[in-house]
Design a protein around this nucleic acid. Sequence first.
DNA 1: TTGCTCCTCACGTCACGTGAGGTGGC
DNA 2: TTGCTCCTCACGTCACGTGAGGTGGC
Lengths: 203, 203
Amino acid sequence: MDADGQFGGDGRRSWRIGQLAEATGVSVRTLRHYDEIGLVVPSSRNPAGHRRYLETDVRRLHQAIALRGFGLSLAEVRTVLDDAGSDPGGLLRRQLDQVEDRIQHDQRLRRTLLRALGVLDLMAEPSVSQLVELIEVITVIDRPLTPEQLEELAEGRRRMVEQLSPEQLQEMSRQRERLMDQLDPDELAELNRNRASLMPPTP
Amino acid sequence: MDADGQFGGDGRRSWRIGQLAEATGVSVRTLRHYDEIGLVVPSSRNPAGHRRYLETDVRRLHQAIALRGFGLSLAEVRTVLDDAGSDPGGLLRRQLDQVEDRIQHDQRLRRTLLRALGVLDLMAEPSVSQLVELIEVITVIDRPLTPEQLEELAEGRRRMVEQLSPEQLQEMSRQRERLMDQLDPDELAELNRNRASLMPPTP
DNA sequence: TTGCTCCTCACGTCACGTGAGGTGGC
DNA sequence: TTGCTCCTCACGTCACGTGAGGTGGC
């Protein structure tokens, strides 16, 4: 039986590019790319020029995929695999720093988005232009709203509500419920805290 | 005084591209790029072809920068600013989902890196090739090490230590301290927990 | 013999960075 | 007059995706 592989004269298993892609979850194009840049070059080709990957190539590929998963660029992956006397502890340490920075940044972004969702809910018929103003308020000012801004929001809401038909009002409340339903309890709690924090501090 | 701006016949302030870049923190090239793709096009040019940004352009730019900060692509920023009847709540919601996914992914990666740093510390003279094997063990297997693997690590350590001079041993311990010093208390605690969890469960 | 897999170009993507070579403005 | 700022090409980056057009393998 030799359905998913092939054995050379030396008895060692070899892989076709498609089989290897399937087995590792990367694309055939990716394998060709790694070959092109010399990162993972198949040990041989068959007479027709088809790539034949041997065990040693497969191992190197697995290593490359793992390192890439650590966030290394392909150039960095190459220097590590070719061991340019680099320092593994420092390498991991730098990667750790990068991930932690990105987590920090994303957590700030997450809070901003939750805050924006909170304010959006205060507004009547939040049009995109209003959203954009809101974003400016939140990101540029990044402070609790002034009483005037709150009044402006409330006034806009009143004006809109007056002009809406009962059906439109119902639709709005349905939309709002849908939005709230999509938030998990943690997010909802944070959103409510944010909404409260938008109000200027009571003296 | 007209040192950092210019007023047209209609009395409205206009900005030169360099001033605007300075004020907003984006590069001049970025402003030219936004002009090229029609995202933020200056309202006019002076006779020599120099871009003149008016207040309205500056506002649009601020909005674009804010939306880009939310992780939108420039194409998405454009559709939002040009209001293709898009739905702001859903937009924010999708962005929130994306950030939360990325946070999850990065937190997993962070744990893997900490785990790898922990194992690295168990090894003697961690060469890059050992690091790479380690990575395979951690990412592919992702389970506590077997007694055999632990013994292999310990054996490698013993063999290395035997061959090292006292100076080399001292240098190694210095390096290890430096590595540990760079970790904050939270990370150290997690690393120690990880190191403990690498051992197979005691029956 | 027929699909299926493989091959090599080669252009496209995304958001700009980076010169090259030249002209206007204070 | 001298810098400084501005201008327009136009290629480079990064890790592939996506055809186009053709050939080998089971």
